[in-house]
Amino acid sequence: MRAVQAIIARDLRLAFRAGGGAPQAVAFFAVIGVLFALAVGPDLSLISKIAAPVIWTGALLATQISLDQIYRADREDGSLDVIIATSDELMVTAAAKAVAHWLSTGLPLIIATPVLAILLNLDRDAYVPLLLSLLIGTPGLSLIGSFAAALAVALPRASLLISIIVSPLYIPILIFGAGAAAAGAAGDPQYGANLSLLGAATLFAAAFAPIASAAALRSNQD
């Protein structure tokens, strides 16, 4: 337990220090929102209609750019060897790495979302459903992403490959997440169903990603 806490604390510290990537992910998220706003132009009703899907897509892309770092840096400096050698259960360690990634990327994105939402003229009623859907869905993004990062840890410059691996796996989370945000804003009865399915997707990722990550890390040792 002490080791798991230490891994999470260390990854968070590294993520927010120079070159750590956590602030960059938030900045990238903001840039996506601004670019969309500029591309759509001055049509306020159109932009408020697409605000939630744009934010969801932005969160998904901003998560992707930081996935490569989850295991690569540790492998390059040899600390992955130490982490693997000292792990009683590698899947628990893999889960800790995913938790650290969510705390350093997913949570800051959620915190930045209200600001971006103002820029995109999101309807007042849509804030809570959007934030709730992000809160339930982004842990799934980190979990699935950490699995892809473990899979590609031995390959140089794998960040594009990781994006290609995770994109199809992210589709259910994107559909139910954006769906829940839209349904919640419109007072649609599908809101609850979408949130439940989104939660199911994240729970499924929580069950499978740490086991798969551990297996991927082990096979990449050889």
Binding site: R10, D77, G78, S79
Partner: peptide, 9 residues
């Protein structure tokens, strides 16, 4: 041969 230490720590 690598030291398993983080340069940012």
């Amino acid at each position: 041969p690598q030291n398993a230490a983080k340069t940012a720590l």
